[in-house]
């Protein structure tokens, strides 16, 4: 490992003193194998302790550190800086209210998630042991269960930016995950919720969500299947 000099431009916003967000430059020296999170830690610990950002697991599983780096939504903890060269431009996720620096208000995001009832709904009695699910049934939900709720997809979706009422790809993916789960009985309720002007029909298959997803989930493909299911159900 060797040290390299990099220039980091960060969109700062301290609500106590700033009227609006502004860019601040940092010239720092870090290990060449650093991640974006390492860079932020270096700035926070050695240069400016007031910098605010979310972090937790450092293993790309908690979904806390999603942010925009050089125009792309990434998880700071899993993204090496060599992908961007020696110039980094870091800003908070788009489409959300900035609370402080890189920390955005994710309340609307989780409220939309709750809206589609992201839990198993059962009409049938609980089985004596566990639910039995065949490999084919599991294949139906596939990688949609891998979502870590980092909000990178919803923040990358152009349909979300002008319309804060749009459910967004993350909530719709979660709806897909339960609608196509063989153990669940709440498909009709969820399909009714997503069959709305602000539901699945605001998705125009732009593919930004897929590109932004750190877990490489084929979100657009799952949402297309959800649309077909809604139509089948409403005909």
């Amino acid at each position: 490992m060797a040290k390299i000099d990099i220039n980091v431009k960060i969109l700062r916003y301290q609500p106590a003193k700033d009227e609006k967000p502004h860019w601040q430059d940092f010239a720092i020296s870090v290990e060449d194998e650093s991640t974006v999170l390492d860079v932020l830690n270096e700035i926070h610990w050695q240069h400016d302790g007031t910098l605010a950002y979310r972090r937790s697991c450092r293993s790309s599983i908690c979904g806390s550190c999603a942010m925009k780096v050089n125009g792309r939504n990434v998880l700071a903890c899993e993204t090496p800086i060599h992908r961007f060269g020696t110039k980094l431009k870091i800003e908070p996720l788009s489409g959300f209210e900035i609370l402080k620096d890189l920390v955005v208000d994710l309340e609307p995001f989780f409220a939309k998630l709750k809206r589609i009832r992201p839990y198993l709904i059962l009409d049938k009695p609980l089985p004596d042991k566990e639910f039995v699910q065949s490999p084919q049934q599991l294949e139906q939900i596939g990688e949609s269960t891998l979502c870590i709720l980092c909000a990178a997809c919803s923040a990358a979706c152009p349909s979300s930016w002008p319309n804060s009422d749009y459910l967004g790809p993350a909530a719709l993916l979660k709806a897909y995950r339960f609608v196509f789960d063989s153990r669940d009985d709440g498909a009709d309720q969820r399909l009714e919720i997503v069959n709305d002007k602000n539901g699945v029909w605001r998705c125009h298959t732009i593919f930004n969500c897929m590109e932004a997803c750190p877990k490489k989930i084929k979100i657009t493909e799952y949402l297309s299947r959800l649309k077909v299911k809604v139509v089948e159900n409403s005909l």
Binding site: E107, A111, D165, I193, D196, N198, W201
Partner: peptide, 10 residues
């Protein structure tokens, strides 16, 4: 955060 409408788009 999510204004349900009577309009569908199906």
């Amino acid at each position: 955060n999510f204004k349900q409408t009577s309009r569908s788009g199906s």
